[in-house]
């Protein structure tokens, strides 16, 4: 990822990450009543709140970057379609492996790439937020792995999803304001 030097670019990235956090919150929320296992519902309940907080932190940062609070930008079409397809996973096994082994590892890498590309002093507030988000996402993956073991869930859906994620380049779209 090339260096991010302008305030505008930082805000576009943060606003895109916010969109993704909201979509992940909605996916976990949609899966909660439609997934049979009580233990999975319990985990999704926690993660709905995690994703909401991530979106909230990012949304407050956009205001500091000269845009409205909770300014949100959809990602490039390929990543948007990827998230929509991931949300269509049906079985509990596919849902857990798709989200936690397929989507999140790539997202964590994208957050890390942003931190590596931005100015560590001038954009330190974003870096602090992203470091916290990455820790939370890693915790979610550990919890999902424990659930997979407890419920003996198959994780075979993940490699295909992860490969599709890796094939998508930059996720920040040309600036399009979301209503």
């Amino acid at each position: 990822m090339r260096k991010i030097t302008t305030v505008s670019e930082r805000c576009q990235n943060i606003a895109t990450f916010r969109h993704i956090s909201v979509k992940l919150m909605e996916t976990a929320a949609r899966w909660t009543p439609t997934t049979p296992e009580m233990e999975a519902k319990v985990m999704f309940g926690r993660h709905i709140w995690d994703f909401a907080q991530m979106a909230d932190w990012l949304g407050k940062r956009t205001f500091e970057l000269r845009q409205p609070e909770h300014y949100t930008l959809p990602p490039v079409d390929a990543y948007d379609a990827f998230l929509k397809d991931a949300a269509k996973a049906e079985s509990t096994s596919d849902r857990i492996s798709t989200l936690y082994d397929g989507v999140l590892p790539g997202l964590i890498e994208r957050y890390r790439s942003y931190v590596a590309a931005t100015d560590p002093i001038l954009d330190e507030p974003s870096v602090v937020i992203i470091d916290r988000i990455v820790r939370e996402l890693e915790r979610q993956r550990v919890e999902a792995a424990a659930l997979q073991r407890e419920l003996k869930l198959d994780a075979s859906a993940a490699p295909k999803i992860a490969a599709r994620e890796r094939a998508i380049g930059n996720i920040v779209a040309e600036q399009r304001v979301q209503a």
Binding site: E26, A29, G45, W49, A52, H70
Partner: peptide, 22 residues
């Protein structure tokens, strides 16, 4: 969770309350 998923246009602060409730 259903309120979070099914009312995406609700005020963000209310969605936060519902997410916390979940």
């Amino acid at each position: 969770a259903a309120c979070v998923a099914e009312f995406p246009d609700a005020p963000w602060e209310l969605r936060m309350e519902l997410a916390r409730q979940a």
